[in-house]
Nucleic acid binder design. Structure first.
Lengths: 341, 341
DNA sequence: TCAGCTTATGACAGCGATGTCAACATCTGT
DNA sequence: ACAGATGTTGACATCGCTGTCATAAGCTGA
């Protein structure tokens, strides 16, 4: 292990000067700086993080606590987004996955304290309210993809209402007037918010919101799990005499079953039926034939924004600290929605 | 920030004694231990990781370098698995995602050195060979889901050959004799290995391997990307007069298109055609109707095993250090394969 | 009673970095 | 030529913790 002192001896200067060079202190003569830098390179010196952290009593590491990284595919993009932001801040990320276990969560809060992390991003893999069990944590905490019911922390969440609006609006612009909805479980916040978005878009265009065209694609079981019933409910919609010309899906999985239901009835997507997904999960949207038009959950952006906000909460960078940031859900047009003449 | 000294003063003992209590040193009187422990709890003392690490000149943090966390859904389970193992070792994880950029990778190797991580798990999201750019990294490195062509590091990879064998074997046991294959891109190692598995299973049962029944589901484009052509190639297989009674797919995405092709021809799964997936991606296998029988990529196990091996490489735990560990790919039976009478 | 042992505790140094402050060299304007 | 400003460097203490070694107290058996 090469230390500052080693470099100093080799370069014939004091340790402090080497430290100055490492930290880009302008108060170093150009020549000295060059010479020292050369020795540093030659000796492969890397500053010891622990020592630095101890001396400065705070670390350049940010904690990332997640409930269940692998449940929703691609929600890991929150992690990628966070890291991308941290890289620019020359920071790194300590990761803790709780699998939803409160005991583990407590453990990891301790661990974050021990590491003196500069802050914590608390990310959930579903958009939902949380009640943080972080009692005496001194540094900033920002919620990603979730929000505090008690408003105790800043949060970054997808704009589900806007996403719903975008779904409906796109179909309306393509000329659709009878639009069916196969939604997520009604207990989810996303469902409520998107519902509001649909209605706004409908109202704007003078369309009537027909509740009988709005059916669930998932039903919640007693044990808390979910059953995917989109195939059956979609069949119901498509067998109506006043069959909708388009269906908005609560997520891309539902869209898979809507495609299947259409195929069963001999209906072709998009000629006989336009289908609009949500989430924009690559492995589904690119796999279906025709490829699925969807509205993306901006996981990457959410992660990135969260670390941005975090550095503001901690006063390390300029800018207002919003209590809640809504990240837009962009439309991704593919081939599953058709223009009505 | 509460320090050892604060606790010591409060408890009326020396810092060293507090340190002993924290570290479960048996040479502490029961009464003293109790008293000190009480103060620790009361004051919410958490040992400073940086100081400890500096003093002991090694850290309890393991680095995890990944190429692209979010490309293959569920491959993040490698991370979950790693963490689960680390938790038992009372360790934590510093994560670095390179997005495949060699420059970032170099940067992160430096970072790992600076943090004096106890070791590194280098995980790729596709099973592939890698050539590590980690020149002067002193601690152990274990590869997860990838392997070193130069055999310079221990690696943990899925047993693709066994997985292929399992796919074929299951169908054979169900009575299938004409089995089609819609494979991944032939350039992938997985494809080659699984192919070997199929042949072993076929040979074992005296089945003839017919190359014309083995068609690609993906084709590699000039720009390096891939096009999913499984729908078309599956149609080709299913229109043959000697139509196979079962199709083995290179992954679950291919299975989606095979289902679609079957639907197009009015064939029912599994009555007219059995379909077998690979990867066991929940969002597909649970979404298709009927639910897809598949062979799982054991990402969680790979991650877990990797940190196990790592602690052996570093001599921190007992056990042999295998150069390469093959993790089995278990069969997950659902409703897409039927017993032939 | 006392050497010799075990048990329990503390004093002290030092891990590798940096903040503080002082020292010295060089330059500026009068 | 000199006070004062500016630029460049180093000595030293210190961050919180633990390894080493010393010390003190309590115990054993001849």
């Amino acid at each position: 292990m090469v230390t500052l002192k080693d470099v100093a001896r080799e370069a014939g200067v004091s340790p402090k000067t080497v430290s100055r060079v490492v930290n880009d202190d302008p108060a170093v003569n150009g020549k000295t700086r060059e010479a020292v830098a050369e020795v540093i390179r030659r000796m492969h010196y890397v500053p010891d993080h622990a020592a630095r952290m101890m001396r400065m009593s705070h670390s350049s590491v940010v904690g990332l606590m997640t409930d269940a990284v692998a449940t929703t595919p691609y929600s890991v993009d929150i992690i990628r987004g966070a890291q991308s932001g941290l890289r620019e801040q020359a920071r790194t990320m300590l990761i803790a996955n709780t699998d939803g276990d409160p005991e583990q969560e407590q453990e990891y809060w301790q661990m974050f304290r021990a590491h003196k992390v500069a802050g914590v991003v608390y990310a959930t893999m579903y958009h939902r309210p949380v009640d943080l069990g972080a009692p005496d944590f001194e540094r900033g905490v920002v919620l990603a993809n979730c929000y505090s019911a008690r408003r105790s922390h800043a949060s970054v969440v997808p704009d589900d209402e806007g996403g719903g609006y975008t779904q409906a609006r796109h179909l309306i612009e393509l000329g659709h007037r009878r639009i069916g909805i196969v939604s997520l479980s009604p207990v989810l916040r996303a469902t409520v918010l998107r519902g509001a978005g649909y209605r706004t878009a409908f109202a704007e265009s003078g369309l009537f919101y027909d509740p009988s065209l709005d059916v669930p694609g998932f039903i919640t079981r007693q044990d808390g799990g979910e059953d995917l019933v989109a195939y059956d409910t979609a069949l119901g919609l498509l067998r109506r005499t006043d069959r909708p010309t388009a269906i908005i899906c609560g997520n891309d999985q539902i869209a898979v079953q809507v495609y299947a239901a259409a195929a069963t009835l001999g209906l072709s997507v998009p000629d006989d039926l336009s289908v609009m997904g949500f989430d924009d999960m690559a492995i589904i949207t690119h796999t279906l034939k025709p490829m699925l038009t969807s509205v993306a959950l901006p996981y990457f952006e959410i992660g990135r924004t969260a670390v941005d906000i975090l550095s503001r909460v901690n006063g390390e960078s300029e800018g207002p600290v919003a209590q809640q940031v809504l990240v837009p859900c962009p439309l991704v047009v593919r081939q599953s929605c058709r223009q009505l003449v």
